[in-house]
């Protein structure tokens, strides 16, 4: 144990140093590579879907919305099958950052809390992670609109 004649704060500092030295090297290079590949591939898939909808004659914003909805559906389906968590476990932020990760963050808690009922289980937990995202997105976008109103 660290010298216990030292003040507690010093002991804690000594220990924090020990912990730091013992920490394994994070696999940053490997993680970044797979985040790039997985994230890139999901966006590439999105581009194919987008082009497909545009070829069907949808306008730019309609095609974008349809693409989002399609990706969300795929992610929800893969989460249900228990596949999507493996994608993010492997690809890290590559699976989290795309809108598919957002969908995963809604479906995962919702289906897991199914046993707690349709109101407090599915209903409430659907927003366990998505809630904060919508709150932050809504508030910042509102602020952007207000600032635009003032300074335009």
């Amino acid at each position: 144990m660290p010298d216990n004649s030292l003040p507690v704060i010093k002991q804690k500092e000594q220990y924090a140093k020990m912990v730091k030295q013992s920490m394994p090297k994070a696999r940053v290079g490997r993680n970044i590579f797979w985040a790039f590949v997985v994230g890139g591939l999901i966006c590439l898939l999105g581009q194919f879907i987008l082009n497909f909808y545009q070829a069907l004659g949808l306008g730019a914003s309609e095609a974008g919305a349809a693409t989002s909805a399609t990706l969300v559906f795929l992610a929800a389906f893969l989460t249900g099958l228990g596949v999507y968590d493996e994608v993010s476990r492997f690809g890290g932020a590559g699976g989290i950052v795309p809108i598919t990760g957002f969908a995963n963050s809604m479906v995962a808690p919702a289906m897991e809390y199914r046993a707690e009922g349709l109101v407090f289980g599915v209903g409430a937990r659907l927003f366990a992670v998505a809630g904060p995202v919508l709150v932050w997105g809504t508030v910042t976008a509102w602020a952007a609109g207000v600032l635009y109103f003032i300074f335009r």
């Binding site: 394994p24 994070a26 696999r27 999507y84 968590d85 990760g101 995962a108 808690p109 289906m111």
Partner: peptide, 17 residues
């Protein structure tokens, strides 16, 4: 896992520790 950390099916990476 679901009580202390994240839902099982939530995509997430765990550190080596």
């Amino acid at each position: 896992e679901r009580q202390y950390r994240f839902p099982i099916e939530l995509g997430n990476q765990r550190p080596m520790t």
